[in-house]
Structure formats: C-alpha cells, structure tokens
Design a protein around this nucleic acid. Structure first.
Lengths: 329, 329
DNA sequence: TTGTATGCGTTATCAT
DNA sequence: ATGATAACGCATACAA
C-alpha cells in the first residue's frame, strides 16, 4: 500500500489477478483464454476500475483513434448540428473528434492541416471553402458539400431534388410568380444544384421565375433593393420566394416585414437547411430539411471504411419538406 | 529508399541529421544544445516535415493533453459559442477538446464520465444539470454556472448585475410596470441570481414587478395564459418584460405577435445571453450579453492552472447590454 | 493455453 | 555538451 497508483495499468491488473501481463491483454481484447483466468482478470478489472489507455493502444497500433472535423464555425445552426452528429457517430465507434473551426479563413484552414499533422489524426472530414486546399495524399479525407478531388468521397444532400421540391411546393400552394434568391461563393459546390433543381421544377410547373444572385462582395441588403424594384403600388410582384439557405430566408423575412409585406399572406417563403431556432422544435421558416444525422453517419462510415476501392465518389442523401409558418400550410 | 516511412519519427530525424536521438529531443524541447547540432536537426526536421507525436509524448508524461467539455448540446446558440471558444482556448495551449454532449440526460452525463476515464482526460469543464453527479476526486474539474462542490471552481457571468442592468434599462426606457419571466430547473445555479438582481433593480427604480415562474414540467405556453390574465381591453398591463434567456424571449415575442401586441411599441422585451441569429451580427432581441469568450478563457485557465491553492471558488464575469430591436432604442 | 520479451515514439537519467 | 539506455502502457510474436 505504499504508492497508491492514481490510474491503474494492465500491470496492476495482472498483479491483482495473479496472472501475466499478456493474459490480461488477451482478456481485454476478447482473445481466447482459460475460463478461470478470465474470471480472475475480470474481477481484478472491476475491483481496480481499470480502463485501457487508448493512447498507449494507439501508439502500438500507429493509430490515434482521432478524426478531425474541419468546419467554418459552430455558430451557424446547421454546422452546429453537423458537429453534434459527427461527434456522436465517431464516439459510437470509439473515435475522438478534433474540432477545427476555420471561420471561412483559408489561412486557418491550412493552419489546421498542420495541427492535424501534429495530432496524427487518422482521418479528416472537411466542410471547407478553400478552393486550393493542399492536403496530404496519405490521410483519408471525406468532403461535405464539395467535390475536392478524384479519389475523395463527397457527401451532400440531394440538393437538386431539394430545389425541385421547393418549386413544386410553391406551385402546390398556389404560387405563379416566384423568385430564387442566392448569395454565393463562386466556388462550385453541391448546394449550387439547388438552383438547377428549382429552375427545373419551375419549368415543369409553369412558374414564372426571376433570379437574384449576390456575388462574393455584395451585402445582403442588396435583396431589399431587388424587392423595391419589383414593387408596384405597394404590392410585390412575386407570390413565392425560394431562398438558398434558411439564413437568407431569415434576413429576407426581416426585410419584408420592414416593407409591410406579409408572410405568408402576400408572399410565401421557403428556405433550405431545416434550421431550428435554439435547436428546439420549430423551424425558422418553411424549409427543405437536410438529413444532417444521415450525412454525419455517412461521412464517418466512409472515413473509417478500410477498403479504398468501395468508396463512392459522391453520395446524395434525400431531403424533406417541413412547414415553418412562412407558407400557407 | 526502401520503405518510405509514412510519418517520420525522431529516430528518422536523428538519422537524417546524423546525431543521437536524445539530441533531437532536446532541440525539439528547446533545451540547450550545440549551435551546429541544432541547425542540422532543424534542417532535418524541415526536410522530413517532422511533427512530434503528442500521444507518445503524453504516454511519457502521463498526460493526454485532452480536456473534456460536458455540455447539454451544441444546438443552443449559447452553448455553440461556448464550444467554439473553449475549443479555441484549449487548442491555443496545445490541448485537445473531447466534446461530450449530454442532452440534459443524467444517464448520459454519467456515461460520459466513463468515456472520460477511458480517454484519460487531464481535466473536465462541465456545464451540467445533474444534481448528484459523481465525479472523480482526482481529476481537475471546472464548472460553468453551477457551484458543484467545495473545491471545484465555478465560472459564470455576473448574473446578479445582469438582472439589475435589465431593470435599470427598462426604467430608463420609460417602463413602469414590468414582469419577470423564467422557466427554471429547480436546481440552484448561478443564473438564478438574475431574478434577485432584477428584483433589486426594480426596487431601486420603483418599478411594479410581477413574476411568472414555470416549473420543471410546465409547457412554455403557460406564458400565453399568463399574458391573457393580465390583459384589459386588448392592452397588456405590462410595458416591460425581462426574460431569463433569449430563448424565452424568442418564444414570448412570438406569442405577443399572435396576440397583436406590438414589440417594442406596446411592450419592451429584454432577454439574457446575447444570442445572435445564425451567429451573425444581430441579436434576436435586446439582451444582456454574456461574455462567452471570457468565460471560456477563464475556464481553461483555471483548469490548466497547476496550483490548486490559488483557484478561486467562484468567478463572475461582467455582462453588457445590447440593443436588439425589442426595446425603444 | 500461458507467460516472456520486444517495440511503438518520447523523455529523462546517466555515463561519456 | 552529447549519446546510450530505460521506462511510459499496451499488443503480439514467440517460447515455454
């Protein structure tokens, strides 16, 4: 009883159980071992409240059981949700998540690649906007929403179908004259397909379509000017709006409020993402919901999958529509 | 050039530089070493793009350079912000964060304590609602918003001052008759002081005060009944509301909208937390802003501080008021 | 089947 | 000042 070991090791367990070190290891890893020995070891484990040191384990295996998640921030509710589900999916597989919030900053994204090296992560899941991110060939990478390279799988929502769905929903709800509102990084990423899908849907349902696309530098207030341009004696020309994200929808709805245009009476609004205020039950707006938890699962699954051969280049997951008070239903 | 080592080790560097292993270690750790040797080692490090394996380092030092963050979720924007800043503060000190989202579930909180053991974290930062959380005596713990035990530091906003500030602000803006709205876990935690501070402020400024406190089971819609009870010919008796969180404020404002009571014309509303929609510039409502980044820094500082003796039992950080459209200013 | 010895990447103690 | 060596906790190939 001289030195009370703060956290017991396999050696302590072996000593306690009166068996050899190797035997303990086998029991821990579920390898075949004599019944009597196993019981004694298990007792000792319980008695000492022993837990394997997964870092030492990793050292042996040349793995760290850690995956990095590269993401702009945790403030955007969509990202926050992604963080949550990816973390959970990793933990379930006894992996740790190294959270790297880049703040849309390319410099930071590169910096994190370094941290990633220092931490010897086993893989990286990245939602990144850096057009020319230089990443290690050797380390597994799964991209969200953006195709990054020939052998790097990309996971995204079915953005095209989502755009289409928005058009159909607006048509079903009686809209005739709709607008598509988007603020876009010029990078081509999967979410860009929302536009194509929406156009396609409008065509199919004979909706008149106007588009307003803000480019990198332009302030979001440009949308207000856009609306004013399409106003005739106080009434907006459009009866439906499809905003490329819930965030845009949120800003747009505020603008409409200031202009005394009622939502959904005068104009119906559909967003994209499925963001909930405070993570609680209700949506900010009627919206196309991304299957965040499925996206997370898929990313982790692909990342940890051993065989490179079976990794598909692009996985699109189905979206759903949800009512959030900004449409007539 | 036979086997191309995927990630170089100290040994490789030593070989490359033609020096002994120990020498490399010293250079890496900034210990004194001959100038010529140092240069050769540094060259080799650059050439091989060597990074220390912090897990092996940890194995020697019996540290993991990992701290766990126990928090209900990342969906609530206030928590999301906390996650972001704590992660950043840890990373700055070359620590990793193990994110443990408990979903307000006591069972999960305990489960994570186990994961925490398996992962041999060096410390825990916890924002937890488990009244009788059983935690290891041996591992450093810093609590957010709740005093948990005699030797466990607690970090929080100055909630009392925040409550006071809300009362003063409402008084300054012309309110005479105000209400305090709270939904409360019965647990006594620092945020409860918001009530005391507000009462204090109302007294000082001669405001008539009504309180409505929802208990654990009651649905938030109870507030709507409360309002209807204090309605006389369509006008609300109150001209100011202090909601204990921005979330409550958000829900309350929606209710008021349905009742055709205008904010801030008919009634002004102040929340608490300083939550921003989508993490962008503007606040959901006029609010008392918690200094999230300071809280995060303080937690990490206290956690990693060696000397137990100098750890204060409770640290309260100053709050500020921010306009968010739901007050007359 | 069980036990022993070696090595994973580092650091620290010791001779040199 | 520099270099060899042991030890950290664990897994495993090999010997008993």
């Amino acid at each position: 009883m001289r030195k009370k070991n703060p956290t017991p090791t396999m050696k302590d367990v072996a000593l306690e159980a009166g068996v050899a070190l190797g035997t303990v290891s086998k029991v821990i890893n579920g390898l075949p071992v004599g019944e009597a020995y196993r019981l004694r070891v298990e007792d000792a484990v319980k008695k000492l409240d022993y837990h394997v040191n997964s870092y030492a384990q990793g050292l042996k295996a040349s793995k760290t059981y850690t995956a990095a998640l590269l993401i702009p921030n945790t403030s955007n509710p969509f990202f926050a949700k992604l963080v949550h589900y990816i973390n959970t999916a990793l933990l379930k597989r006894r992996y740790r998540m190294l959270l790297c919030t880049t703040d849309y900053d390319s410099r930071m994204e590169q910096e994190y690649i370094t941290i990633t090296k220092q931490n010897k992560v086993d893989g990286i899941i990245g939602l990144t906007y850096n057009p020319n991110l230089h990443l290690e060939e050797t380390i597994p990478f799964v991209s969200i929403d953006r195709s990054i390279g020939p052998h790097i799988p990309c996971v995204a929502s079915d953005n095209f179908a989502g755009g289409q769905m928005a058009a159909e929903k607006l048509a079903d709800l009686g809209c005739k004259n709709v607008a598509f509102l988007r603020v876009g990084s010029s990078l081509d990423s999967e979410p860009n397909k929302r536009k194509a899908g929406f156009e396609n849907g409008c065509l199919a349902r004979d909706l008149i379509l106007t588009e307003k696309i803000l480019h990198d530098g332009e302030p979001i207030s440009e949308f207000e000017d856009f609306f004013r341009k399409h106003l005739s004696d106080g009434k907006l020309k459009f009866d439906g709006l499809f905003c490329v994200t819930d965030y845009i929808a949120y800003e747009v709805i505020k603008m409409l409020g200031k202009m005394d245009i009622r939502v959904p009476e005068d104009v119906q609004v559909i967003g994209f993402d499925g963001v909930q205020a405070f993570g609680s039950g209700d949506y900010f707006c009627s919206t196309i919901v991304q299957p965040v938890s499925d996206i997370a699962e898929m990313c982790v699954e692909l990342l940890l999958q051993e065989s490179m051969s079976t990794k598909p280049p692009l996985v699109c997951l189905p979206v759903t529509y949800a009512y959030g008070g900004t449409t007539k239903e």
